[in-house]
């Protein structure tokens, strides 16, 4: 395995960080377990809007991603150890790839596990629905991770800026202003859920699975390229 991937896994696997991630990941699962069993269980549309969209795609996945992915480079910039990696013949994209993959590997089990258990409880073992929610959550996490890895390279306040982005853009504006969903990762996560299981979010307007895949790939590519470019041009502390 690539040494930067292994190093980053160790950097991001602090016990405290992982404990907080576990608590975050369990929130939608516990919430779902409580509400679906009661006599006042929500309608499917309500559940999708509150749990799948607002909680999973709009809060849990980005919070897990910002806590982990922004630290992939952020801790090295803060500790001034980044020069250990940049003063090497490694192509810069390999450094970014190692950091990104490690972020996804550390954050992935929390986001994916949370989505799987939540949808499993909610949709009564309907595996199409479970798979759609789980895959969409993973794609959403990937997108959030690539954005926050880049953010960790451009600002020392990556966590703060990331939280503002999550609360204002993904949480507030994209929840109320439908046009903003075109530029929101939460919107694309929902589009993935609908694309893989058309019974989900049936009342929303969707762009279709193929455009969603294309845009998701483009966002990945653009932020990956921006991270590589930043690493090549920045003054390394």
């Amino acid at each position: 395995m690539h040494p930067i991937f292994v190093l980053t896994i160790r950097q991001l696997s602090g016990r405290m960080r992982l404990s907080i991630m576990a608590v975050l990941a369990l929130l939608p699962v516990l919430f779902t377990a409580l509400v679906v069993r009661g006599e006042t269980a929500p309608f499917v549309q309500e559940f999708e809007a509150i749990v799948l969209s607002a909680m999973l795609a709009g809060a849990i996945a980005p919070l897990i991603a910002v806590a982990i992915a922004s630290g992939a480079f952020g801790t090295e910039v803060d500790d001034r150890t980044l020069a250990n990696l940049t003063l090497t013949p490694l192509p810069r994209w390999k450094i970014v790839m190692g950091k990104l993959l490690a972020s996804v590997v550390v954050a992935g089990p929390f986001a994916v596990g949370s989505a799987f258990l939540t949808s499993f409880l909610a949709f009564n073992r309907d595996m199409t629905a479970v798979l759609a929610v789980t895959v969409a959550s993973f794609v959403g996490l990937l997108l959030y991770c690539v954005v926050f890895v880049w953010l960790g390279l451009v600002t020392k306040q990556a966590i703060g800026v990331g939280l503002l982005y999550i609360v204002l853009w993904e949480g507030f504006f994209s929840g109320f202003v439908s046009g903003i969903r075109v530029g929101s990762i939460r919107g694309y996560a929902i589009a993935w859920m609908h694309g893989l299981d058309p019974r989900r979010f049936v009342d929303d307007a969707h762009v279709g699975l193929i455009p969603t895949i294309v845009v998701s790939a483009a966002v990945m590519a653009v932020f990956f390229w921006m991270s590589t470019r930043r690493l090549r041009r920045m003054d390394v502390p």
């Binding site: 500790d79 001034r80 250990n84 003063l87 013949p89």
Partner: peptide, 19 residues
């Protein structure tokens, strides 16, 4: 912006922080 050169150079910066 010439990473290949670092195969021939060893640099020890002033910062003493380590992993």
């Amino acid at each position: 912006d010439n990473p290949a050169l670092y195969g021939r150079i060893g640099v020890m910066s002033e910062h003493e922080t380590v992993y």
